[in-house]
């Protein structure tokens, strides 16, 4: 089946552009059901912690080509990765803006001289989960305060754009109708606080991009290719929208 992206006929509507007031923001953890909350709260029942364990093992193991392990350059993950996820996506020394996945892939290719593991591979999600855990409970930093205002604006424009055959914007569901029931599914506010997540519906770990791809296909819009700059822009806007909220990565979601 072919998918189409139908662009908005009307420009962003100021009356609706207000979003959710800061004191009314709720993470997906707060709005999901008590069973999923209990599963996430207890590290022994949170399936994402298996990913963390695998990621920590990978952190400490050197590739076969004799190049250093992650720990060979960065040392103790608890010390050097503290707060890193809370300030991603971030601009790199060379000017490129990367999400955490892209950053890890760049280390794999440049510093370990190995073929980077693909997005959504178990290995990369595990490494990302191990790094993200070191920001758990910390406040998400505002990308605009780190020179990413332009990406924030591009991401916000996408967020307010009507998309796909269903002609719905992210904002119409996540700002205007969060808490309501779409079929049997409660619409969350759409905050990117818990990624990578273990999603019960997937029965697997997955990234924010995978989650966003689901929302795109939900409105029958053609998703961008994996790693496309539009996904990063959207992530940056979502992080701006969630700035100051606590990270709960790696989370469980329904």
């Amino acid at each position: 089946m072919r998918f189409f992206i139908f662009l908005a006929l009307i420009a962003a509507v100021p009356a609706l552009a207000q979003g959710i007031a800061p004191q009314d923001r709720r993470s997906g953890f707060e709005t999901m059901g008590p069973e999923a909350q209990a599963m996430q709260r207890d590290d022994f029942s949170n399936p994402a912690m298996l990913g963390v364990a695998a990621g920590e093992a990978a952190w400490n193991s050197a590739p076969a080509n004799g190049k250093p392990a992650c720990s060979g350059c960065h040392g103790d993950i608890n010390a050097t990765m503290r707060g890193v996820d809370a300030r991603y996506p971030a601009r790199q020394a060379n000017g490129a803006v990367m999400d955490l996945t892209g950053r890890i892939q760049t280390c794999q290719s440049q510093h370990q001289a190995i073929t980077p593991e693909p997005r959504e591979s178990a290995g990369l999600l595990a490494l990302q989960a191990a790094v993200a855990l070191r920001s758990r409970g910390m406040q998400i930093e505002a990308p605009a305060s780190r020179g990413l205002s332009e990406a924030v604006s591009r991401g916000e424009a996408l967020y307010r754009q009507r998309l796909g055959q269903l002609n719905l914007s992210c904002a119409q569901c996540h700002d205007d109708h969060w808490g309501r029931s779409l079929g049997g599914t409660r619409i969350p506010q759409g905050h990117p606080t818990g990624y990578p997540i273990f999603r019960l519906e997937w029965q697997a770990m997955g990234s924010l991009q995978r989650r966003l791809r689901n929302c795109f296909t939900g409105v029958r819009a053609e998703p961008f290719p994996a790693g496309a700059s539009e996904w990063i822009d959207l992530e940056i806007y979502l992080r701006q929208r969630a700035a100051g909220m606590a990270s709960d990565a790696p989370g469980v979601r329904p």
């Binding site: 072919r2 189409f4 139908f6 509507v13 609706l16 719905l168």
Partner: peptide, 21 residues
């Protein structure tokens, strides 16, 4: 539905340009 309410969330079910639901 946007012909009736420009801000509606109800999807347009019929289009002639190929992307009809």
């Amino acid at each position: 539905s946007t012909a009736i309410n420009p801000e509606t969330i109800m999807p347009p079910y019929f289009r002639k340009d190929g992307g009809t639901i």
